[in-house]
Design a protein around this nucleic acid. Sequence first.
RNA 1: GCCCGGGUGGUGGAACGGCAGACACGGCCGCCUUAAAAGCGGCUGCCGCAAGGCGUGCGGGUUCGACUCCCGCCCCGGGCACCA
Length: 942
Amino acid sequence: MATMSESTADRDVPPFRYTAQMADEIERRWQDYWEEHGTFNAPNPVGPLSDPDHPRAGAPKLYVMDMFPYPSGSGLHVGHPLGYIGTDCYTRYQRMAGRNVLHPMGFDAFGLPAEQYAVQTGAHPRKTTEENVARYRAQLRRLGLAYDNRRSFATTDPEFYRWTQWIFLQVFNSWYDPAVRKARPIAELVAEYESGARRTPDGRPWAELDPVERRRVIDDHRLAYISDAPVNWCPGLGTVLANEEVTADGRSERGNFPVFKRNLKQWMMRITAYADRLLEDLDLLDWPEPIKLMQRNWIGRSTGAHIDFPTDAGPLRVFTTRPDTVFGATYMVVAPEHELVDRLVPAAWPAGTKPAWTGGHATPREAVDAYRKFAAAKTDVERQADAKEKTGVFVGAYATNPVNGARIPIFTADYVLAGYGTGAIMAVPGQDERDWEFAEVFDLPIIRTVQPPADFDGKAYVGDGPAINSGFLDGLGVEDAKKKIIQWLEENGHGQGAVTYRLRDWLFSRQRYWGEPFPIVYDETGLPVALPESMLPVELPDIADFSPKTFDPEDGDSTPETPLSRERQWVEVELDLGDGPKRYTRETNVMPQWAGSSWYELRYLDPANDQAMVDPANERYWMGPRDERDCGGVDLYVGGVEHAVLHLLYARFWHKVLYDLGHISSCEPFRRLFNQGYIQAYAYTDERGSYVPAEEVVERDGRYFYGDKPVRREYGKMGKSLKNVVTPDEMCAAYGADTFRVYEMSMGPLEVSRPWETRAVVGSYRFLQRVWRAIVDEQTGALRVVDEAADEQTRRLLHRTIDGVRTDMEAMRFNTAVAKLIELTNGLTRLSATPREVAEALVLMLSPFAPHLGEELWRRLGHPESLAYERFPSADPALLVAESVTYPVQVNGKVRARVEVPADAAEDAVRAAALAAVAEHTAGREPRKVIVVPGRMVSVVL
RNA sequence: GCCCGGGUGGUGGAACGGCAGACACGGCCGCCUUAAAAGCGGCUGCCGCAAGGCGUGCGGGUUCGACUCCCGCCCCGGGCACCA
């Protein structure tokens, strides 16, 4: 469009019209001005970023944050900055409303996407990452976002990840004390053992343990620990993954590769210790209810009981949420992986074994081995698909029901999961649908222990009702029966009340290159040793071959190999860690993607501090609790729902550890969360199913064509491969950044997803042109503003607009705020000149949305300073009350007339006027009822 | 299957229980122009020449009055998914 008719187009355009070219010139000029003047720098209470002379020093603060981006190689499309523009409009408004606003931006630059892009292009990840960050910065700058740029960082900066490593050390060097429900320094645990206040695991005195034994005991309590446990191994990515990174069908969220369960030594974070607090403190947060619910479900707290069922191989412990139904337990099930299985299996089938139970095998050993193989071979997808058909096999052994001595068979079946509870259940088919299904397949007895209602005609009954067939529980409701049986179990040593969680500990190591190195080395014992703070940061070495070793994606038996392990001269180090110089081996795993984003909200507060992660005074000012009931945290955090569990749960966990250890005053990182919607787009495929450029598709009679070929339309994401990407750069070139911003804000409410429509952007362009024209003469460039007062009608319109816009801005209803500004502007076009009082208020109110145009017009109106700290206009209440009111008059619910009466007219007068107006419709009949809603309407009922 | 969101003109969306469709796109008509584009002005929920009627996914209910509140369905999007 830039090449369109070089001369003719320009000749007819008035010389001072607000065009894309003019917008571009204005925008660049003001972006330079803001940068040069540090206009959006926010003063800290203490430290190098403090500034007592700042116009907002000491003012009420507001900390607003966006979820920072991964700087991917393909740059931004128009969907990415939606939330950023939203927070920018909001913070610009709040700054004008008198708040000291902190609005920073950074880059989440470690992790798989950046690394994989680097691997593809063959360039070093640091180089590509730095280029991508630079490109993102330029794209965001062009949008006029008002960040405090002194506070910007990338998580890959050594000065930043030094503190990521420091936090890891805090976590490593602490343990969770359930007695006080918080993390404590590990030294206090050592002291408890030394003094004998705490018993050692095997009861020997602490002094008798050798140093290695002592270290093992302590390491078992750390919040960051090494475990050899089943993890999600993804050969296709060459790394292990956290549970949260694996999809329901057993594939990697990134790359969609198969994931296998394997036992591997890995770093874990003891997030489960915080399960209850992570759950309880959700109540303190101003978050969308669906997000809280997703976190609650993810944590998955269940209360019930552990019950021990005696067997020949020792007690079989189960977890149940329904201990009240224990009299109805007619069989037991253990997961195929359960460690007791091998000890239970006898040499031969016992007497009374039903044929259906053996799976056709001659011995229990054969049957169990075959079933295990069968279960292990199933992918998670198959497992889900088969969920309705219960499979399993009798292990050949029996357990004893502790409440009634009944001898009940033990099965192994894959409908019981090894990873949840104890990996074993008591099966109560009468009150559990899954157990009922299994009982039907294997011909097992069913005993109801809760009396279903008379009209119940289903199978398992899971509702409330009086206990039956349950001995001393008979007649009790479910809740009472639970209490009584738990008491009985505890008194008789058969079990106790218990709580379990779905949440697992956080798998924290990755076999990758592009992540934070661990500040950990190993000594000759093979046990981990923390490096002292003085050795931070442990810099990621520059190695020649940074690509991870990947494997055949289907080869679950492969073993990960870390890129850093190949760098021997980095791995082998001699250090003096207090016992004189010694040889050590470095940890060669790196931290996961989520490490940097789990605490970055804190670093914005004090980015230059090299003595501490954040100065407590700065943290207290920006994030501290407002009162005893407040958790503190960022005042507004905006981002997409896709981070509902992963990022938000990890960040909450780290924040709580830092809080427990006394480093910060807020116990939650994000007090208020707002989920913005997405900008989506149409994509088009031809008859072969390949994508055609969306830009060139035309609509004719509701059908879509690429050239003369019909194409099929689909709706979803924007993406290179879908050939439907529209970039902010294109929009800035064609209309200017201000137009683009106004368009994104007026498309709809920020929280709602909506389709991108390039041709609709022109509406916002025309709006800004009308504003410009109301103030500047397009032919001469002279001001069209006069100092005479506005007429009454214009004034009332202005103050109604101010009132409405303020309300909308507070509530982040930017689309309706823009609509009101358009109405005000449209109200000015009938005037021959614009009164200054209206022009200035309009410019100030528009400036959060179109900041460059705002600054430019404000300057032309004669103000030498930036408007960033001007007071946002306030409405005069006297001008908000209308002089006269038009009442619609309803007759039997239908509007039949309107009457205009003075605003202060008495109700009787309104009633009389209304009745007179609808005399024709009442046709002389006496209304049964007349309702006058003051200021609203009149309703006549015949 | 369970749990969340959400269904309003051709389109994106407005609307304290009180005039449904603000604002914008698109469309139609006009002005300007040799012409086109840009810009500007008018009209634009549906049916109907009109009077008028009908309209917020569907069916009920509460109310003088329901997009809004209640009950029962349908459809779309998302989350979880044998969690004992």
